[in-house]
Simulated scan of single mutants.
Amino acid sequence: MSRRKPSGKHRRQRPAKAAVKLAKAYRCGSCISEVRGIRRDDLGVDHINVVHDAECPVLNGVLPDGPDAFRAAARAGVSMLAVRVGGAE
């Protein structure tokens, strides 16, 4: 048991190991992208900050980013869950 007294401040949570592996394996299929960090929000969801080239069709919404993310998960050997948010069509 820890003897350290709680300070009342919340520690900044580290991203999950799977998110770190995914970020290292991510490559955009349309440009030379760069991962500029990972953060975990208050709900415990990890967010990977990917910077794409200005002309990248993924950045501009012409192509989806899902296939690149799934390829990165396969390369990293991590599981990934995709959920569609919104109403049924």
Rank of each mutant, 00 (worst) to 15 (best):
R4P: 01
K5A: 15
K5P: 06
K5F: 12
P6R: 13
P6Q: 08
P6M: 05
S7N: 10
G8N: 11
G8V: 12
G8C: 12
G8D: 12
K9D: 06
H10Q: 10
H10T: 09
R11H: 11
R11F: 01
R12F: 02
R12A: 10
Q13C: 02
Q13K: 14
Q13G: 02
Q13F: 07
R14C: 02
R14Q: 15
R14D: 15
A16D: 11
K17A: 15
K17G: 12
K17T: 08
A19E: 03
A19N: 02
A19G: 06
A19Y: 02
V20I: 15
V20A: 00
V20N: 08
V20F: 03
K21N: 08
K21E: 13
L22G: 02
L22S: 00
L22T: 03
A23K: 09
K24T: 05
K24L: 04
K24Q: 13
A25Y: 04
A25N: 05
R27N: 07
R27W: 05
C28Q: 09
G29R: 14
G29T: 11
G29P: 07
S30I: 02
C31R: 05
C31W: 04
C31K: 06
C31A: 04
I32F: 03
I32Q: 14
S33P: 04
E34M: 07
E34F: 05
R36D: 07
R36P: 00
G37E: 10
G37N: 08
G37L: 03
R39H: 11
R39D: 10
R40S: 06
D41L: 00
D41N: 15
D42S: 13
L43K: 12
L43I: 09
V45T: 12
V45R: 13
V45L: 11
V45S: 06
D46P: 01
I48R: 03
I48D: 05
N49E: 08
N49M: 10
V50H: 01
V51L: 13
H52S: 07
D53V: 00
D53W: 05
A54M: 08
C56W: 03
C56T: 04
P57M: 04
P57Y: 01
P57W: 01
V58K: 08
L59Y: 11
L59M: 09
N60A: 05
N60P: 02
V62S: 08
L63W: 07
D65P: 02
G66Y: 06
G66P: 08
P67A: 09
P67N: 05
D68N: 12
D68G: 11
A69P: 01
A69H: 00
F70W: 09
R71L: 13
R71I: 09
R71T: 09
A72T: 04
A72G: 04
A73F: 00
A74C: 03
A74V: 15
R75E: 15
A76N: 06
A76Q: 02
A76K: 06
G77C: 11
V78A: 06
S79G: 15
S79E: 14
S79V: 12
S79K: 14
L81M: 12
L81W: 07
V83E: 15
V83Q: 14
R84N: 12
R84Q: 15
V85M: 13
V85W: 03
G86E: 10
G86H: 06
G86Q: 08
G86Y: 07
G87W: 03
G87L: 14
A88N: 10
E89N: 06
